[in-house]
Design a protein around this nucleic acid. Structure first.
Length: 919
RNA sequence: GCCCUGGUGGUGAAAUGGUAGACACGAGGGACUUAAAAUCCCUUGGCCCGAAACGGCCGUGCGGGUUCGAUUCCCGCCCGGGGCACCA
């Protein structure tokens, strides 16, 4: 019998499906382990070999954990709402539901071929009404909650109303956006509409005006993480800043907890760092400056991290979008300011970033420095951001490079405050040195002066300590069709939640998927998009809505009563191992943590962090091949000779190339224009050039996992993807080495079968064979726990070489169990040929027979290169030769040596000897 | 500019303080075969001496340091990859 992977894989995949081998259960009193993949967006292109990399890694770990006696939850589903299906719908009129359904079916087919041990009974799509009911439910929970800064948690809005009734707005310390100030009496006198408007400033899901990323090409707003360098991440269209009223999630309220929680997580440093940068905590102070415009005074609050530099303030700057701009523009400057604002508004986000040109305009008003009493001018410039701090700053050109550039451009004074700082060419930004020109701060170091200045400001009622975060509230509306509808209707202009019984609010059918002619979102096309006669919200939720709590739903996917039952949540708790790409660092992984913390505050989940351990698998890049056409001819020159000609580089389909050698006949048949091509060869072959690029259709370098399964089988694909290198590293796909792992599987087959003869015997194993097996057990356990799968596979290869000719059941049986996480199909087949009825997954992982003592290391060496080392202290007066003699004579280490021979004794003139043992 | 990563043969890579290059690919040589495929065996970092080798020297981006001993730890550079960036 040959190793017939096609038949074996088909057989076992249907056997697993039929027996529901991998159904997760909370029974049996075993400890739980939850292994999750970042679920895919089912695109039309299907999976390429890069997608399964992380899935294979997590599958190996799941299977390993099952063998170790855990109840493993390992589910899969689809992040199915999204732009591509909708764009396709706009072009073709096909309902996104149909596109999505087809793509999901294709994904499932591809996933099944690789032999994953998912519990498919828990599969769902985020676009299923039974799923998005809970997305809508969570939104309503957020709508009905506010964030209490004192308790640092979310609470029901009813409690907020009660507090207002008692003590007005001063009664609470709540996260809010520009909430108005009022007394209890005023609150009681408010109309329903007025009360609703006030509460809207406190809700965790709220409607508010803010500067948003508006993408006209997509006709929708975008969240910060969906914009890269001023272009939309999807489609690459320009993005503009625009003030709009949008639904938002008060993520900023959780900034401190999101930051702190990182310390408790087992994530990579780089990923944590990305989140820390994104959250962007900075400590400083808010200070109040009196600003006067045409005789009218206002108290304007600014934020600074350098309170020590107040004595060097020579001007103030407002963001163009700041609400103070209107009040602080003098009659004489009105025209100039308006012209400037107009100019700023027209710029794309990209131009604002890239331009770096210093622009600004004088507002006509003046501010008083609260410490010196001096008057300084107030300017308006786009270098100050409206969304951060208070949208207004004090400018200290001597010690801030941006202020410096501005002062130079507009000829504003620069006052140095640190002894020895030369500010003639550039500012001195470093937080070091001795203060001068700074009144009571003179003589202090900068590090002393910062807190001293803040203390002074607080003591004199000029301001207060303040921690600012860079993270913004998440814009939660998209003017699109293919997303979750908001469970909100507008009753007399008041945003009102749908009652729970009305959920899910399903997407209406519409005739076209584009916005209406007057710019309304597509849902405005729906007939009768109302609730009880009142209009429903026409926006839909963004992509991250559906993916923010999906890991909870897998715990209890068919529950109609709750997102997840208390029982299921208590058992599965949170994700123990999460594997996915870094691209979600500042999107999904922030939103999910926020979402989870919110549900935790309300008592719906029992863990406050959703993902304990997280591994980022590297990207698999494509390896493109090129041919070189001599300019103006149809002659192609081999890569080694191309320097002698003027050539054009052309991507060639990698399926026409093997080991960088071109299949010339195939190439001629590929495109009609190449049918008559001629070739200049080297050594009778056409050698192609190559480059590592993103895997994409246009570069003809896409490798499809089905192709690999057809040629080599799923087990080979799995082993090879893991053998390619460390999981976290990005690497190009290169099939050069794939024969190696395929050969390895064939070798295993031959341990059991010699042509048509079954070889397995019940003979007792030799010590050597046991040693090989135990070496493998040790290595595999150690490696898998560290996700070092490539070295585990090496260990298997060594073991197979050591076991050549060994066909003893006592060795082969545990060997198969060890291998089964990596190559499940072939191991199952051989397992059953050994006479087992049950699936191999119910067998248990073999344990070490003996403790790892020095003696046993000699018997079952753990160190890997076939060598065992240890060290002994020796008297300093012995010469190296004398030491070696004593070691060999067993005088120094006789009992450790056992049946090993000493390969080498390295003696260092100190007194340590390194003894290398060899079989 | 700031932060995080990484830099080892022809290639993917091992080795986290102890013989650098495990394992695999590729390449070269050989066995079996009429032949091919498949399979198996040997060689494979560089240089040098030699009939031989379980002989010598060099070698983990560069320069220093700690140590009996450094790919590994520390300091300073150079280069690649990723993230953040008028965030006051």
């Amino acid at each position: 019998m040959d190793y017939n992977f096609i038949e074996i894989e088909k057989k076992w995949q249907s056997w697993w499906a039929e027996h529901k081998t991998y159904r997760a259960s909370a029974e049996g009193g075993k400890p739980k382990y939850y292994v999750l993949d970042m679920f895919p967006y089912p695109s039309g292109a299907g999976l390429h070999v890069g997608h399964p990399l992380g899935y294979i890694a997590s599958d190996i770990f799941s299977r390993y954990k099952r063998l170790k006696g855990f109840n493993v939850l390992h589910p899969m589903g689809y992040d199915a709402f999204g732009l591509p299906a909708e764009q396709y719908a706009i072009q073709t009129g096909q309902h996104p539901e149909i596109t999505t359904r087809n793509n999901v079916a294709r994904y499932r087919e591809q996933l099944d071929r690789i032999g994953f041990s998912y519990d498919w009974d828990r599969e769902f799509r985020t676009c299923d009404p039974s799923y998005y009911k809970w997305t809508q439910w969570a939104f309503l929970q957020m709508f009905g909650s506010w964030y209490d800064n004192r308790l640092q948690k979310a609470r029901p809005v009813a409690e907020l109303e009660a507090a207002f009734e008692k003590g007005g707005s001063a009664a609470v310390d709540a996260a809010s956006n520009d909430a108005p100030v009022f007394t209890a009496e005023q609150w009681k006198s408010f109309s329903d509409k007025e009360k609703a408007d006030v509460l809207m400033h406190y809700r965790i899901a709220y409607q508010g005006e803010s500067t948003v990323n508006w993408c006209p090409a997509l006709g929708t707003v975008l969240a910060n993480d969906e914009v890269k360098d001023g272009y939309s991440e999807r489609g690459g269209h320009p993005v503009f800043q625009k003030k709009m009223t949008q639904w938002q999630l008060r993520v900023s309220a959780y900034a401190g907890r999101l930051l702190k929680g990182l310390d408790t997580l087992d994530w990579t440093d780089s990923l944590k760092e990305m989140q820390r940068n994104w959250i962007g905590r900075s400590e400083g102070a808010e200070m109040v400056f009196k600003m006067t415009c045409d005789g009218v005074s206002h108290d304007v609050t600014i934020f600074t991290t350098r309170a020590d530099t107040v004595f060097g303030v020579t001007f103030m700057v407002l963001a163009p979008e700041s609400e103070w701009v209107e009040k602080l523009t003098s009659a004489s400057q009105k025209e100039a300011v308006e012209a400037y604002l107009e100019q700023v508004k027209k710029k794309t986000e990209r131009e604002r970033i890239a331009g770096k040109a210093v622009t600004g305009v004088f507002s006509g008003s003046y501010a008083v420095n609260p410490l010196t009493g001096e008057e300084v001018p107030v300017w308006i410039s786009e270098y100050v951001l409206a969304g951060y701090g208070t949208g207004a700053i004090m400018a200290v050109p001597a010690h801030d490079s941006r202020d410096y550039a501005f002062a130079r451009k507009f000829n504003l004074p620069i006052i140095p405050l640190i002894e020895g700082a030369d500010v003639s060419e550039s500012s001195f930004d470093a937080k070091e040195g001795i203060m001068m020109n700074s009144g009571f701060l003179n003589g202090m170091t900068v590090k002393e002066a910062i807190p001293a200045a803040i203390d002074y400001v607080e003591a004199h009622g000029l301001g207060r300590r303040k921690v600012n975060y860079r993270i913004r509230d998440a814009i939660f509306t998209r003017q699109r069709y293919w997303g979750e509808p908001f469970p909100i209707y507008y009753k007399d202009g008041i945003a009102t939640p749908l009652p729970y019984e009305a959920l899910p609010l399903t997407l209406p059918e519409i005739d076209q998927y584009r916005p209406t002619e007057d710019g309304q979102p597509p849902l405005a096309r729906a007939k009768d998009w109302t609730f009880n006669g009142y209009p429903l919200e026409t926006s839909t939720m963004p992509g991250f809505a559906g993916s923010s709590a999906y890991y909870l739903r897998y715990m209890d996917p068919h529950n109609d009563e709750a997102l997840v039952s208390e029982e299921a949540d208590r058992y599965w708790r949170n994700v123990d191992l999460y594997i996915g790409g870094t691209e979600h660092a500042t999107g999904h992984l922030i939103y999910s943590r926020f979402w989870n913390k919110f549900l935790y505050d309300l008592g719906y989940v029992c863990e406050d962090e959703p993902f304990r351990k997280l591994i980022n698998q590297g990207m698999i890049q494509g390896r493109s091949n090129f041919v070189y056409r001599i300019v103006n001819t149809n002659t192609f020159v081999s890569a080694g000779l191309r320097d002698r000609y003027q050539t054009t580089e052309i991507h060639v389909d990698i399926n026409l190339v093997r080991n960088d050698r071109l299949d010339i006949e195939g190439f001629k048949a590929w495109r009609p224009e190449f049918a008559t091509a001629e070739f200049i060869l080297e050594d009778g072959e056409y050698v192609c050039g190559w480059a590592v690029e993103k895997m994409s259709k246009s570069m003809f370098n896409v490798v499809n996992p089905d192709q690999v399964c057809d040629t080599y089988g799923a087990d080979t694909l799995r082993l090879y993807e893991m053998f390619l290198g460390p999981l976290e590293q990005s690497k190009p796909w290169d099939t050069k080495g794939i024969d190696g792992v395929n050969r390895f599987l064939k070798k295993i087959w031959r341990l059991f079968w010699d042509r048509d003869k079954w070889l397995v015997t019940d003979e007792a194993p030799t010590p050597d064979e046991l040693k090989a097996l135990h070496k493998l057990i040790g290595k595999e356990q150690e490696d898998i726990e560290h996700f070092s799968y490539n070295t585990t596979i090496s260990a298997f290869m060594i073991a197979v070489n050591d076991l050549q000719g060994c066909s003893k059941r006592a060795i082969l049986e545990p060997f198969l169990i060890l291998l089964s996480p990596f190559a499940p199909h072939i191991t199952e087949e051989l397992w059953h040929q050994l006479g087992h009825e049950e699936s191999i997954s119910y067998a248990s992982f073999p344990e070490y027979r003996e403790e790892l003592t020095v003696e046993n290391m000699v018997k079952y060496p753990v160190s890997f290169n076939g060598k065992t080392r240890f060290f002994v202290e020796v008297p300093a007066d012995l010469t190296p030769g004398a030491v070696e003699e004593k070691v060999r004579g067993h005088e120094l280490t006789p009992k450790y040596v056992g049946d090993m021979t000493i390969a080498k004794v390295i003696v260092v003139p100190g007194r340590i000897v390194n003894v290398v043992l060899k079989k």
